[in-house]
């Protein structure tokens, strides 16, 4: 089973050294993605999901950030041991990334056709004309209407949804697209456009057998896209498993709280108060060795404050990090 893993993260620790102290942004994270599958990394702001993505790309801003320890194996090769030059070859080739706001990752002074063509020129040694023709093809693939006209547009002339399509086209232009990391790819988009982009991503992923790491805070997007789900809270993975297990049989109080906080949850169909998680996300500077969710957990016991729980397995790859997983009856 292990050699089916395209990306395999083991014991990743990332910290940020700020003026106020050391922020443990990601702690002891294990995460893997099989070839061709979609893993959704879910959590709220500050849970470490975006830092994980930067760590995979080796783009954690340093200083203040630092990858303390761990392994990030891509097809068996540890990315953390590569030289910067070797890593550059992997970025944009084996791993590509799309962001929430595509405007920041597109260069505003170049036409989008030139920017896509650039990928073909660097990775395939194509001439400019051939590369531009390829760019048109790629825009067509991501269903941008009138691609031969659009290649001459500048980024600001496109709508948000179109720009995200361009980013996807660029990500897929590399010779060996193996993993796409999508960091909140539809958060800035309208719902109808979000649906289009999600559909497009799903379709393309199927046709080129690519792995997708989808980072999002939106459980609705997760339900729609993911094969497997990992839930993070305050730097720790607290629950992971198959999408159906996570949604239908959540075992960590935080996952349960998150699902209950969704106004689109079936049980609020006809009004009523939400079952909110009380309190606020803890300050990572003050987090102890215990379970990070302890301060907000209604089932917390003294033990939770002292010790971060060991993993509990519930079968089918469903793992939970909670001392009382399986013992709690959620109402």
């Amino acid at each position: 089973m292990d050699n089916n893993r395209f990306l395999d993260i083991k014991g990743l620790n990332v910290s940020f050294y700020t003026q106020k102290g050391v922020v443990p942004a990601v702690r002891e994270l294990d995460l893997w993605i099989n070839k061709g599958e979609t893993l959704a990394l879910v959590g709220e702001s500050g849970c470490g999901k975006s830092v994980t993505a930067s760590a995979i790309m080796r783009l954690v801003p340093s200083p203040p950030g630092k990858i303390e320890s761990g392994e990030i194996l891509l097809d068996g090769k540890d990315l953390l041991r590569l030289t910067e030059k070797e890593m550059q070859e992997i970025r944009g080739d084996r791993i590509s990334m799309i962001f929430q706001e595509p405007m920041t990752s597109l260069n505003p002074v170049f036409r989008i056709g030139e920017q896509i063509a650039e990928v073909f020129i660097t990775h395939y040694n194509m001439d400019k004309k051939g590369a531009l023709a390829k760019a048109v093809e790629m825009l067509d693939m991501v269903k941008i209407p009138a691609p031969e006209k659009r290649v001459r547009d500048y980024p600001h002339q496109l709508s948000g949804g179109m720009r995200q399509r361009v980013m996807i086209a660029m990500a897929l232009s590399s010779p060996n697209p193996g993993l796409m990391i999508a960091d909140e790819p539809t958060t800035a988009l309208d719902v109808t456009i979000q649906a289009q982009i999600l559909d497009l991503m799903r379709e393309l992923q199927k046709s080129i057998q690519m792995s997708l790491l989808l980072i999002t805070h939106d459980m609705g997007v997760v339900a729609e896209m993911a094969n497997r789900v990992a839930v993070m809270y305050a730097g720790r993975k607290v629950e992971a498993g198959d999408v159906y297990d996570i949604f239908e049989n959540p075992m960590h109080p935080y996952t349960v709280g998150l699902l209950n906080s969704m106004p689109s949850n079936e049980k609020y169909r006809h009004a009523g108060r939400l079952e909110a998680i009380e309190g606020n996300v803890p300050n990572l500077l003050e987090i102890g060795s215990g379970c990070p969710f302890e301060s907000r957990c209604r089932y917390a016991e003294p033990l939770c404050r002292e010790k971060f729980p060991d993993v509990k397995e519930a079968g089918n790859g469903h793992s939970v990090w909670c001392h009382f997983a399986g013992d709690i009856k959620f109402i």
């Binding site: 709220e44 702001s45 459980m219 939400l274 996300v281």
Partner: peptide, 10 residues
């Protein structure tokens, strides 16, 4: 965030 959003809606 979703969990906080629920508190505020309540």
């Amino acid at each position: 965030d979703v969990s906080v959003q629920a508190q505020i809606l309540n």
